[in-house]
Design a protein around this nucleic acid. Structure first.
Lengths: 184, 184
DNA sequence: GTCTATATGTTGATAGAC
DNA sequence: GTCTATCAACATATAGAC
């Protein structure tokens, strides 16, 4: 390893992190490159040196999230379909929601992200895979609704300012308890 | 009643309805006045004849929703605090989510709307009142999380395309069942 | 009530100096 | 890698004719 390690907070990484924060607060369509640049104290052109377009920034932000979902799918696919798989899925989503808390959550339902996800092969592929693993042989209306409510509820409550005072550990426990009541 | 009745689809009403549809699909920040005008087959200037600004359109769209929430609060406030009030609240929200299905839902979490709500006295007042009636004397972490998850889950699942094939009646029943398991 | 035309600012994005 | 300067496209919003 003669080559020196990339600085801990590389310019590229800082752009991604600044974008993440602003996207979470103002949404993708409500966040301009000027806002991201101002937040970093640099110019728009410097942001464009790292990314060719806004879409590239958005993709760089959501890619790790989709990678996590992809891994979660792989894990739950090894479980038998039905209740065990459902329970592992919501438990995994609770971990993700806690880990990112109030940040990842925004992406669930952001129209600016939805559009980009649809046009990106990798993301939409994972998206389809996720939907497939969830709907697998599920004819039961009650179960399908419960899963849908659990997923959007987990993300929605993780970012709810009204319960922001609750610690990660307490929130995780409470969410798992809710999930168990819904799909267990 | 010498004066003739306003046409069923007045120009103003049509603008509101067109905005509602587009806001739900693209978000407030992702919807331009040009898009609304095009959707109605009229010009931007005609839209501005009905509303002085985009914010006015957004307010006109969300006001009825907040009026419904206001009424719901008044109803549940007459109930004893605790479980009975919580159950009535989620039941009322289920009715609202079903009634609007896939439309009202977007407003829950749209950054463009959140910002406007905060700056509008009426809306933010109702918002505060709603939060107060929910948090009333609730120290129990599990209950607070369950309520948060139920609320965002109800709205989120009502707009979930993955369960759009389920009829309103079936969805209402399934959501009420979920709500009961969470807060009952 | 609707239109065309326009004013004014902001957006995403590029060129080129340092 | 960062900057200033600039672009075309689009945003909200207004003026005034019909």
């Amino acid at each position: 390893m003669a080559r020196s390690v990339a600085p801990r907070g590389s310019a590229r990484t800082r752009v991604i992190e600044a974008a993440l924060v602003q996207f979470a607060e103002y949404g993708v369509n409500g966040t301009s490159l000027q806002m991201i640049a101002d937040h970093l104290g640099i110019s728009k052109a410097s942001v464009y040196y790292q990314f060719h377009s806004k879409d590239e920034i958005v993709l760089a932000v959501i890619r790790p999230v989709f990678a996590e979902i992809d891994q979660l799918i792989t894990e739950v696919e090894m479980l038998p379909a039905g209740a065990p798989r459902r329970e592992a899925t919501v438990a995994g989503l609770v971990e993700m929601a806690i880990r990112h808390r109030r940040v990842t959550a925004i992406f669930y339902g952001d129209p600016g992200i939805d559009h980009l996800v649809s046009s990106d092969p990798d993301c939409s592929g994972i998206n389809e895979r996720f939907k497939r693993v969830l709907a697998m042989a599920e004819e039961d209306v009650a179960t399908r609704v419960a899963m849908s409510l659990a997923i959007s509820g987990i993300y929605g409550s993780a970012m709810d300012p009204g319960i922001a005072d609750i610690s990660d550990e307490e929130l995780r426990e409470a969410l798992l308890q809710c999930a168990k009541r819904l799909v267990g």
